[in-house]
Design a protein around this nucleic acid. Sequence first.
DNA 1: GTATGATTTCTGTCTTTACTGAAAAGTCTG
DNA 2: CAGACTTTTCAGTAAAGACAGAAATCATAC
Lengths: 201, 201
Amino acid sequence: MTEITKITVLDHMPPATRRFILQWGDMGSTWGVNRSVAQIHALLYIGARPMHAEEIAETLGIARSNVSNSLKELQSWKIIARTPLPGDRRDYFVAEADVWEMAMRIAAVRKQREIDPALETLSACLEEADGDKDVSDIQRQRLEDLRAFTLTMDRWYDQMLNVPTPVLLRMVKMGDKVVKLLGFGQKKKAKEKKKTKNQAA
Amino acid sequence: MTEITKITVLDHMPPATRRFILQWGDMGSTWGVNRSVAQIHALLYIGARPMHAEEIAETLGIARSNVSNSLKELQSWKIIARTPLPGDRRDYFVAEADVWEMAMRIAAVRKQREIDPALETLSACLEEADGDKDVSDIQRQRLEDLRAFTLTMDRWYDQMLNVPTPVLLRMVKMGDKVVKLLGFGQKKKAKEKKKTKNQAA
DNA sequence: GTATGATTTCTGTCTTTACTGAAAAGTCTG
DNA sequence: CAGACTTTTCAGTAAAGACAGAAATCATAC
């Protein structure tokens, strides 16, 4: 009945570091990546130095094979990179340090995995609906609306992903000031003003 | 050994409609929602008329309880709404018809579920790191970078979510023209130009 | 109150995904 | 090419999530 808790290198880290790796790992599930992957990324990011698979496995107390697969996954997101270390045959990995660059890479893959297939599905449906009298006008319209939206977002992603990160940063920081500067003179809705914000749980 | 395929109302729909519901349901997993939820949303969206739980269950061939839970989930995303039908005691549901409104609602919930907790985690880590000499400067810096980024995105979401959808539509349609108009005069990278685009699978 | 119909909760089953440990494949060195 | 080291693949297990069907709760009408 005794709870066996595996002792890992993680336990000897500063509390803040350990906390980051652990909680970031858990948060991964919210983002759609599993714990191992998120933990490894957190470790490489916070560690800020090249590490090899064995070291990662030991540090986090997970299986070597799991690390191998997770590293592959992280590479597919292009947010970690292999860095050959002279005199060592093992593969070392480092995380992308620039958070904006990191976010852009993630966005690019997400677009590819989430938006592009949606577009194909919608186009296929619309094509099939074409000429089928059983499909009502309103249904056709809804499919078309959804496709138009998805297409717009698709193009928007493509364009934003090619904007240099410093420029993007400036623009994002401007927030809704952008809207005013562009002369989209509509008055902003003043809703949600009375809500007390940031009441952290 | 015979494959039993449940016959549902779905089978009597126009192929395009059926395809949409089925494929959209499958795509749900990519987006982090389960099949039932995605299918029900697709059905309500394409059906474009109020439906009650029983009807949904029959149409899609899934359990009544499953429908109940899925409807609750869709309501938490605020992309379907209950519409009382006079003379009928049952709850009828309709999907938000405006795709932009729908996208905004989803974005709002995603922000709340994905960004806000991240921000809390990072703040907590930084607080814990403060004064701990075992946490190196570079580690502190990385946590801070991540927090700053997350905070920036948090604010950006808040502001964008308050921009009226027609305005947002115009802005998104402009794409990277916005960057030029704002006078962020940096030359755009001309990469990725040679790639043949849209080679659909 | 009781009866009827609608909805939610609960429990167990099935499916999917994550993960481990071992075996296989690959890679560099001498 | 032998031998040591490294990484990947594979098969089985464990954990998590999705789902069905039954039971319980809730709401309305009478």
